[in-house]
């Protein structure tokens, strides 16, 4: 179901912003889901969506990385375990399993969230410099990626007065 142009126009007519751009800079569960929740809801609200994956976020767009999303246990005060315990071996894996089990009871997995964004007409972009210094090549990217873009493209989108821009 791709968003019809008239639906987007309808939202704009009311004086509300009609596009959502999110910089996805982190690759852990607790940082990805807020971005994906907004990105999957925006088309239902009549908004267009562009996601810009950079730094650790970019790893999620690789065929290998999309399957191994974790939650960080170090320096993550929101986790229900004493903060210092986060540095113990195995804590990241434990926290990941615990959170994944809870979250996936209610929400689609990260790969499915990516599919949902695409099905509703959202676009997914990989940050070109991040690809360079992380050694990620085009062939390593998942097929859902629409394009590889840099800072100028992002700033052009973000400068649109009809766009909401978030950095997560």
């Amino acid at each position: 179901m791709v968003l019809a142009a008239e639906q987007v126009q309808e939202a704009a007519k009311q004086g509300f912003k009609k596009k959502l751009v999110i910089v996805v800079s982190k690759g852990t569960i607790d940082m990805l889901y807020p971005a994906f929740v907004l990105a999957t809801t925006a088309p239902a609200m009549g908004m267009e969506v562009d996601l810009y994956f950079t730094f650790w976020g970019l790893k999620v767009l690789t065929k290998k990385g999309v399957k191994s999303v974790k939650i960080g246990s170090v320096g993550n005060p929101g986790l229900p375990l004493p903060n210092l315990m986060g540095i113990l071996p195995g804590m990241t894996a434990m926290a990941t399993n615990m959170m994944k089990k809870r979250i996936e009871k209610y929400w689609p997995s990260v790969p499915n969230m990516i599919k949902m964004v695409k099905e509703s007409g959202g676009r997914i972009h990989a940050c070109s410099p991040t690809m360079g210094f992380m050694g990620v090549e085009e062939k390593d990217l998942i097929p859902e990626v629409d394009g590889i873009v840099g800072a100028s493209t992002f700033l052009r989108w973000a400068s649109d007065p009809e766009t909401v821009t978030l950095f997560i």
């Binding site: 179901m1 929740v37 999957t40 809801t41 088309p43 239902a44 929400w107 949902m116």
Partner: peptide
């Protein structure tokens, strides 16, 4: 039993 954002996404589909 479903949590945000699924109900809104599903309702938006169903109303179409």
């Amino acid at each position: 039993g479903l949590l945000c954002p699924l109900p809104v996404i599903n309702v938006n589909k169903a109303i179409q």
